[in-house]
Design a protein around this nucleic acid. Structure first.
Lengths: 340, 340
DNA sequence: TCCTCTTACGCAACCGATTGCATAAAAAAT
DNA sequence: ATTTTTTATGCAATCGGTTGCGTAAGAGGA
């Protein structure tokens, strides 16, 4: 096992001081070109790698960014992470990823770990059941940038990155109405999460605009897991209102639902039109193909990375620019179309 | 911004030495219960968090594990990562995730970064075009556990975690043959990657067992990206061998292919049977549903995490137990079925 | 040639925790 | 009461870089 070589080794071999080696390696202006070259040449020759922990310790910054996501195994999350990882990596940061597994308790633990790992910044997409936010105060107290994305909570001086879920919900609903649906139902997750409640707001707004009645019973709360498909189908069958349009807050759930409904004898879109959310790849593969709202996960990740980095570099004042809203887009496919 | 408090602060306030504080906090046996309690109480009172970098620097270990994956936005990858993250996290480790984006150059960079981040161990799933492996030698030289998973390369003393791709390929092919296919084609990625070449080996073995002829032209190499669907369809139309069975090394690709073929007038499974690989959620959603090989990403992640941790803790001698092979399972769905 | 101003580098403190070794205090043994 | 053993703590070096400050050597000017 080769001993890892340090600036002291280099210094000794080159007959200079460790300080000079350090400065050379960091391209400090007060070192002559000649010396720099000698040092760098030797460093390469010996395969010198700086010890990040020593560097972090003295520089008091870690070049790591932490992120807490609910779960990573969805297309949306993983493409968002892909975008974040790529962006922060190019800026020289490492990304520590942790999952709350949709549990506030785990989220607290993760936050504590990341805090004690001295991340330079932290990104958070909230767990399903998170209802208090004190676990983020250490970051705020220590002025560590905290950015919420997608599943957000507004805390003063914390940036948030979202799409306009209300508007997207309105557009989706409006589309269903234009396709002739009269009796709509919204299927979403925990309304404490902005993504679900805001979409329902849009759903309501579209109703009001079209002089349709709407009340809380139009919000069918579900954990959007595959196991709940059966309950939803049962609900649709048993309800006295004859539902002819469904706005589902998740494409994968919508896709499974379509499959189940078709097997259960429903005709989609003839009997029942369905629109999803996210533009997950499955929406193109299911039959009928699923109309949806395109929700740019990767771009969101890139933007999140960029904004957190510019925050770290101090090049943007986030006290001012506090909320970034990304574009979204209605995508019409077969599951909401009349003709054919 | 509260100054972060250190063991020196605690030491001063409690009139003990920093060493005592450190030992108390680490539950060192040679500290009296009374002192420990005093220290811990004070630490909690002031919200003391140990500075990991200082600790890492002196302990020479970081409690982080690095992983390089080709891309993280596939269901398989993200569930594998979910499994790894959960496991190593429970063991007190952080996970630094980086993507090679299927490029060897990026993989080299990532390896260098992780090395200089002093990860305690590294997990790797190789990029599409990785053809040399010197970028891993620093880890080996420094005795840092290196575990390959899924897309592996055999290096002495490095553990690998795989499924039996050859056997899985044989089973998939055998199934097609049993369903009456006479003219098979295998669509896979770069044969430098074990996952693709081994499946083809199984494909060949099944042919030989059934006294079918097979040669290299039965391997259609593709990058398995969506853009290549058109080329594949063209190939199927133009080839003089009338293909009636397709073994595709990726479910998502197979799903898109089914969609394209059906649109192009093919009947699946009547004209052409298709079997995929991975048991991606999409395989149940596409019409016809896709037969496939179940490939347990999450479990693979858990196992990878466990084995790397036991390696770090020294509880398993990996010089002996070098390759772990996971179970896989043939899953038969509509895309390969005759009746109906 | 002597003086001033740069330039290039060395010195040493510092970041915050860990840990081997020494030792004072307390407990046990004689 | 004295010595030995045990227990609990302190001291100080160490991990590997970074950085403010001081200064010798070299460049430039008079």
């Amino acid at each position: 096992m080769n001993k890892r070589i340090t600036i002291y080794d280099l210094a000794k071999m080159l007959n200079v001081s460790p300080g000079t080696v350090s400065r050379s390696l960091n391209d400090h202006p007060s070192i002559s070109k000649k010396t720099k070259e000698r040092v760098i040449a030797k460093a390469n020759e010996l395969g010198y790698k700086s010890n990040k922990f020593a560097a972090n310790l003295s520089k008091q910054q870690t070049n790591t960014i932490g992120i807490i996501v609910p779960k990573l195994d969805s297309y949306f999350m993983s493409s968002m992470l892909a975008g974040i990882e790529k962006t922060v990596n190019e800026a020289g940061y490492n990304l520590i990823i942790s999952q709350s597994l949709e549990s506030m308790e785990k989220e607290k633990l993760n936050a504590a770990t990341l805090f004690s790992s001295s991340v330079d910044a932290i990104l958070v997409s909230l767990a399903y059941d998170t209802s208090s936010f004190e676990h983020f105060t250490p970051f705020i107290q220590h002025n560590i940038p905290l950015l919420f994305l997608d599943r957000v909570h507004h805390i003063p001086n914390c940036a948030t990155l979202i799409i306009d879920n209300r508007l997207a919900g309105e557009e989706a609903t409006e589309h269903l109405i234009q396709q002739g649906c009269k009796n709509l139902l919204y299927i979403g997750g925990n309304p404490q999460r902005n993504v679900y409640s805001d979409r329902f707001k849009g759903f309501k707004d579209a109703h009001l605009k079209n002089n349709f009645t709407v009340d809380a019973s139009y919000y069918l709360e579900s954990d959007l897991s595959r196991d709940s498909i059966g309950m939803i189908v049962a609900h649709l069958k048993s309800t006295n209102r004859k539902i002819d349009g469904l706005f589902v807050a998740s494409d994968t759930f919508a896709a499974h639902l379509i499959k189940a409904l078709v097997q259960g004898g429903y005709k989609v879109p003839e009997d029942l039109k369905i629109i999803g959310f996210n533009n997950d790849p499955v929406s193109e593969l299911v039959t009928p193909t699923l109309s949806t709202i395109d929700y740019p996960g990767y771009e969101m990740g890139v933007l999140a990375g960029q904004s957190v980095i510019s925050q770290l570099k101090g090049s943007i004042n986030f006290k001012l620019a506090n909320t970034i809203t990304l574009r979204h887009q209605l995508i019409i496919r077969e599951s909401t179309l009349n003709n054919k």
